[in-house]
Amino acid sequence: MSGAVRLLLVWAALMALLALTVGAAFLPIGMAKPWVAYAIATAKAILILWFFMEMRRESGLARLAAIAGFVWLAILIMLTATDYLTRRWIM
């Protein structure tokens, strides 16, 4: 498969996932709604990392650097959530 065709297919997959995100917003799934959106967003991020950011061709060191970005994002979200999720514990 040529590079251009591959990129077009990945782009089409991203568009399909976008449509899925919009569609999922109308489903009557209550509290699960944001988690479905997060799951679709994660799939999009993986596609972008793997194909558009060329992680599939990179060395272990570059992949480690990319993973580090997500670890740091996890630190940001986790410790911020430590505040938001526990505000009602002690009034």
Partner: peptide, 18 residues
């Protein structure tokens, strides 16, 4: 150093647990 920022927010309304 990335995990300590909340000490700037002790009186801000941040949860006591955080």
């Amino acid at each position: 150093g990335f995990m300590v920022w909340g000490h700037h927010m002790f009186v801000s309304g941040q949860s006591v647990f955080a």
